[in-house]
Design a protein around this nucleic acid. Structure first.
Lengths: 152, 152
DNA sequence: GGTGAAAGGTCCAGAGA
DNA sequence: TCTCTGGACCTTTCACC
């Protein structure tokens, strides 16, 4: 599926505010509500729009500490890697996990209440996984920018 | 504002799918639509719910390369830091930027089309900012997990 | 917190550019 | 092929119980 300028404009709007009506979006892109609806439906079908979610402020629900945790595995066989990935997927503290280039294998973004909860995550969860080599933690002091919107 | 179990349940639902009607959410938490509506409105007012957005798959709109860029500044005076933060806020390639503990000052999450576009960002944008010391780039090979939902 | 009703949005069929 | 109009149906929002 290729996106024309109208599609891209709609995407930019929806990525900022998904609560606007098709009519309001139509006014912004010089179309009526129906073509807006049709274009959105097609982008949903194509998997370009993955879904609609509410964004919650972590600090206001007691998740004030954000940590980036770089993990280096001991062994790099296929099974060891798949095991790690499966287990990390289950950890509710882990919001993001990436398999990276470079000396560290994985980069995790972890959201917890405080340092005590982070220590618990490291000692009781991460360290108990098979095959963990080294772990390096970097703590977020300030969030300067956080966009969920992709630049289209 | 303190959240009871019903509020938390509503937040968990909305963070997964913001398109459900108040009636559907009410069925899931054993309430009618109105109290669901009132609770959501209060959480919006309190800033717990920051907004509603569409999630777009970066790979399907030509942003296939995700890079974590660690930046170390040369000087750490107040003005130098504020300058960097203001400029990075304007860069559309930068989806996230955090002021970090440790030897690196900032961690950026950058989304671009390909390596050529990343090189352009580093050479033409980042390196042109005053005060940049060292830059280390780590590339995402695979996204194992990416949650926007905060664990409440 | 529930009920019910007004206002307005979504979704789709049919027609036209 | 893409867009508009009109209408059935559903949701949001709010006054009242």
């Amino acid at each position: 599926m290729t996106l024309d300028d109208t599609d891209k404009k709609i995407l930019r709007i929806l990525q900022r505010n998904a609560k606007l009506s098709h009519k309001q979006i139509g006014d912004a892109v010089n179309k009526s509500a129906t073509p807006v609806y049709e274009r959105i439906r097609k982008m949903e079908e194509a998997g370009i729009v993955k879904g609609y979610v509410a964004l919650v402020d972590p600090r206001k629900v007691g998740k004030a500490l954000i940590v980036f945790t770089a993990v280096h595995l001991d062994r790099h066989e296929h099974d060891a890697i798949k095991d790690f990935e499966r287990e990390i997927g289950k950890a509710e503290e882990v919001m993001e996990c990436y398999h990276m280039t470079g000396t560290d294998d994985y980069l995790l973004k972890v959201a917890v209440r405080d340092m005590e909860e982070y220590q618990h995550f490291i000692v009781e969860k991460l360290s108990r996984l098979q095959n963990i080599g080294t772990v390096r933690s970097s703590f977020v002091m300030t969030e300067i920018k956080h966009e969920t919107a992709v630049n289209v």
